[in-house]
Structure formats: C-alpha cells, structure tokens
C-alpha cells in the first residue's frame, strides 16, 4: 500500500486525519458554547442518549488521533535525519515557530487530551464534582464550573488552547496544500485564514474557563 509508506501518501493521511480532528474541534466548540445559554446539561444528555453512536464516534476519533500521532512522530524523525541542521547561521524566510514546532505543540495537545478525558470524561482527577442537577440529569455545568474556578486548572486549559492555536495555524493551511486545493491566489489567503480560524477557535474555547474564573458564569 503506497499510501501508507510513501512520503506523499503519509502526508495525505496526516491531512485527512487532521481534518477529522479539526472537524471535531469545531463541533466540540459549538457544543461547549451551550454553556453560555444555560443548556450544557441538556446538550450533554442529548449527546449521550445514543451510546452506540457515541462509541462509534469515539473510535473514529481515536483512530484518527493514533494515525496522526504515529505518522507525525515518524516523519519528524525522518526529517531530523534528513537535515543535519548544522548551519552556523540560518535565517528562516518563511518557516515560523508554529510550523517548526508541530511535533511539540501536537504532543502537548495529546497530553492535554489525556488529561481532559481523565478529568471530564472519566472523572479521575480530584477536582471533579459528579452529581445530578434539579431534574436528575448529570450536572456537567457544576462539574465544569467547579473545576474551572480553580485558577491552576484554568491556566492549563489556556495553555493548551494556545498550543491548539499554534498547531492549527500551520495545520489548516497545510492540510489544504496537501490535499492539492491550492494555487498562487489561495496560498496567502489560506495562510491568513488559517491563523484567523485558529485564533477564533482558541478564543471561544478560552472564553469558557475565563468566564467561570472571573465569575461571569454561575
């Protein structure tokens, strides 16, 4: 299977799995904003009312992440080997902090995802308050708002979302280029668009722990 081993084939798989993950990030963000309309518990209950669907979704996401991480690590190691990086002086013309540190922002995001799942999905961290709300639904709002009221936890989320911004500000234009959906006119547009979309995602995600931390959401 050429697509699994060739340099362009693996890039296409990185791109497709990346797109799935971006789609997830987008849907998850929209879902999270229900917290601003007092509908988080209702949203969470709807989401979990179809367990087989939830599990299919989780498996797809897990496979996408696994493929994305495996190839990401593999190509990064190959790239380091292909470039001895021994220039005494090297000036970057176009590469930037985000494009050069995809592996680190990516691995930090992977760690964050593990933490986030352990916390709000598996309820393993000590800060998590599990209970039911007035109409006997799992009280997700109380759980989230209790945890985010802790400044240390909120800061972890802020940091992770900055990593998300960096990763996607290169990842978005990069996946478009890899799919071949690019030309001289679109290259600069996607470059700027990628940063704008990433910044938007970061700010919306950050707004939730920030709102709780400053007491705007009760």
């Amino acid at each position: 299977m050429r697509i699994l081993t060739s340099t362009v084939g693996r890039k296409i798989l990185m791109s497709i799995t990346g797109q799935l993950l971006i789609l997830f990030v987008l849907i998850h963000m929209i879902g999270n904003t229900t917290i601003f309309f007092g509908a988080l518990n209702a949203y969470a209950e709807h989401l979990h009312s179809l367990p087989p669907l939830v599990w299919i979704f989780r498996l797809v996401m897990l496979s996408a992440i696994a493929v994305h991480i495996c190839y990401g690590v593999q190509v990064t190691l190959e790239n380091k080997a292909a470039n001895p990086g021994a220039y005494a002086v090297k000036k970057q013309l176009k590469a930037n902090f985000a494009s050069e540190n995809m592996i680190w922002t990516g691995l930090l995001l992977a760690l964050f995802i593990l933490y986030h799942l352990a916390q709000f999905t598996m309820h393993l961290t000590p800060d998590v308050v599990v209970g039911l709300d007035a109409i006997n639904r799992p009280d997700v709002f109380k759980m989230v708002s209790t945890s985010f009221a802790n400044a240390g936890i909120a800061v972890v989320y802020f940091f992770a979302m900055i990593m998300l911004f960096l990763h996607l500000s290169h990842g978005i234009p990069s996946f478009l280029q890899t799919m071949g959906w690019n030309n001289d006119k679109t290259i600069p547009v996607f470059g700027t668009g990628g940063k704008v979309v990433s910044a938007f995602l970061m700010l919306v995600y950050i707004s939730i722990p920030a709102a709780i931390l400053v007491g705007a959401l009760k």
Partner: peptide
C-alpha cells in the same frame, strides 16, 4: 535518496 518529507514550511519557494 535521503531527502526528508515536505511539511509545508514554504521555505523552499522563498529561497
């Protein structure tokens, strides 16, 4: 032939 993988830095076009 020992080349690395393209990760869309676009450093090439600039140089």
């Amino acid at each position: 032939n020992g080349f690395g993988n393209c990760s869309n830095h676009y450093e090439c076009q600039a140089a």
